[in-house]
Simulated assay, not measured.
Amino acid sequence: MKTYALAAVIILSLSACAQTNNPVFPGWYADPEGIIFDNEYWIYPTYSAAYEEQVFFDAFSSPDLVNWTKHEKVLDTSAIKWAKRAVWAPSIIKNKDKYFMFFGANDIQSDEETGGIGVAVADQPAGPFKDHIGQPLIDRFHNGAQPIDQFVFKDQDGQFYLYYGGWRHCNVVRLNDDFNKILPFEDGTMFKEITPENYVEGPFMFIRNGKYYFMWSEGGWGGPDYSVAYAIADSPLGPFKRIGKILQQDPEVATGAGHHSVIHPEGTDQYYIVYHRRPLTETHHNSRETCIDVMEFNEDGTIKPVKITVNGVKSNPLN
C-alpha cells in the first residue's frame, strides 16, 4: 500500500467473502467521482451533511474495489479562501503530472453572490489540494445553469471539456491545458447549452466504441425518485437525445439512487457505476451512502438497467 504524506489515512476493510460490499465505505457520502490513478481505484465524494458543514472533501483509494483506505480532508476551505460552505461533487483528472480537482462551492443563487466552480491542484491523488487560480473558474449563471456539479472530460483529441449545471440546465465549456481559463468554441460562444430531456443535474461523460455516452441525474436529490438517465451521441457536444433511465431505486434495497460516475479499467470491457443512495431505514435527505455496482451493455451499445445490490462488486485488482 502506498503512503501519502499529509493525508490522514484510515484502513477500511470490507470482507470480500461476506459479499456485503455496499456501501463501499462507512459514513454519509454522496456525488461520488470514481477514477483510476496509478493502478489504484479512487473515489472522491461530497461529504453529505448540512451545507455549513460541507467544508472539506475526503477521498478513498482501493487496490481491488473491496478494501478501501480513507484519506481525510484532501481539500478543505482553508485552502480556498472564497469558498465558505457547500463544497460539492468533486471531479478530478490528471494532467501534466498534476492532479486537478474541480468543485462547486457556496451554492450561489444569483450572479450577485460569491461562489461557483473552482479548481484545485495537488502533486498526488491524496492531496493536499490547493487553490489553482485564486477565484472561481465559473461564477455566473449562463443559459440558466447554476454553476455546480462539474465533470471534467478529456476527449480523444486531447481537448478538455467541463460539463456542469444545476437548475435543469447543462452547459459544456472548453478548457485550456492549464485549467485556468475557458476557451471559445469555433462559433465564438463560450458556454454551450446541451441540456437533454429531463436533465436535472450531475452530468457525466465517457467514450465506448467511438460513441459518447452522456449521463445525468433526474428527480430531486433529497427524495426517493432520484435516478440516472443517459444519451449516446457521435460528438462530445451532442446532440444528446434521452434514451432512458438505467439507475433508480429498488424498494427492496435502497431509494434515491443517483449522482453517479463510471469506472472503466483500461483494456477491459468491465464497467462499474459508482453512485449514492439512501438506505431504506433512513428518511433524512443527507443520509446518503456511496455504492458500486456492475454496469453492462446490450449488443447494440445501449446500457442495461443496473441492478442495485447489497452485495456490490467482487474484488478486481488492477495489477
Results as ranks from 00 to 15, higher is better:
residue 10 I to Q: 11
residue 265 P to V: 07
residue 120 A to C: 11
residue 50 A to W: 00
residue 223 G to R: 15
residue 115 G to I: 04
residue 130 K to G: 00
residue 255 T to H: 05
residue 301 G to V: 07
residue 91 S to I: 06
residue 158 G to P: 08
residue 183 L to Q: 13
residue 99 Y to K: 07
residue 104 G to A: 15
residue 90 P to V: 08
residue 51 Y to I: 01
residue 69 T to Y: 09
residue 229 A to W: 00
residue 311 N to R: 14
residue 128 P to Q: 11
residue 319 N to S: 11
residue 229 A to Y: 03
residue 27 G to H: 01
residue 101 M to R: 09
residue 258 G to S: 10
residue 231 A to C: 11
residue 77 T to V: 14
residue 146 Q to W: 00
residue 101 M to A: 06
residue 286 N to K: 09
residue 93 I to G: 06
residue 96 K to A: 15
residue 72 E to F: 00
residue 114 T to I: 15
residue 126 A to F: 04
residue 117 I to D: 05
residue 134 G to Y: 07
residue 14 L to H: 13
residue 157 D to A: 08
residue 36 I to A: 06
residue 104 G to V: 01
residue 161 Y to D: 10
residue 197 E to F: 07
residue 313 V to S: 04
residue 306 V to M: 07
residue 21 N to P: 01
residue 263 I to V: 15
residue 171 N to K: 10
residue 57 F to Y: 14
residue 15 S to K: 06
residue 134 G to M: 08
residue 111 D to I: 08
residue 287 S to M: 13
residue 300 D to G: 07
residue 144 G to S: 05
residue 150 Q to H: 13
residue 257 A to M: 12
residue 143 N to W: 03
residue 182 I to K: 03
residue 91 S to W: 01
residue 154 K to P: 03
residue 197 E to P: 00
residue 300 D to I: 05
residue 233 A to P: 06
residue 71 H to G: 10
residue 89 A to P: 08
residue 247 L to F: 09
residue 118 G to H: 12
residue 224 P to F: 10
residue 104 G to R: 03
residue 82 W to K: 08
residue 208 R to L: 06
residue 3 T to K: 13
residue 302 T to L: 12
residue 83 A to Y: 02
residue 5 A to P: 11
residue 153 F to R: 12
residue 161 Y to T: 05
residue 212 Y to K: 07
residue 28 W to E: 09
residue 192 K to F: 12
residue 7 A to G: 03
residue 297 F to L: 11
residue 243 I to P: 07
residue 162 L to T: 12
residue 200 V to M: 11
residue 24 V to C: 06
residue 237 L to H: 09
residue 134 G to S: 09
residue 13 S to Y: 02
residue 119 V to P: 11
residue 240 F to Y: 15
residue 183 L to M: 11
residue 78 S to C: 00
residue 309 T to I: 11
residue 292 I to Q: 03
residue 135 Q to S: 13
residue 135 Q to E: 10
residue 187 D to Q: 10
residue 132 H to P: 03
residue 51 Y to L: 13
residue 129 F to A: 00
residue 84 K to G: 02
residue 86 A to M: 02
residue 27 G to A: 05
residue 5 A to G: 01
residue 63 P to S: 04
residue 102 F to E: 04
residue 40 E to Y: 09
residue 97 D to C: 07
residue 76 D to S: 04
residue 317 P to L: 11
residue 46 T to R: 03
residue 250 D to L: 13
residue 317 P to G: 05
residue 176 N to E: 09
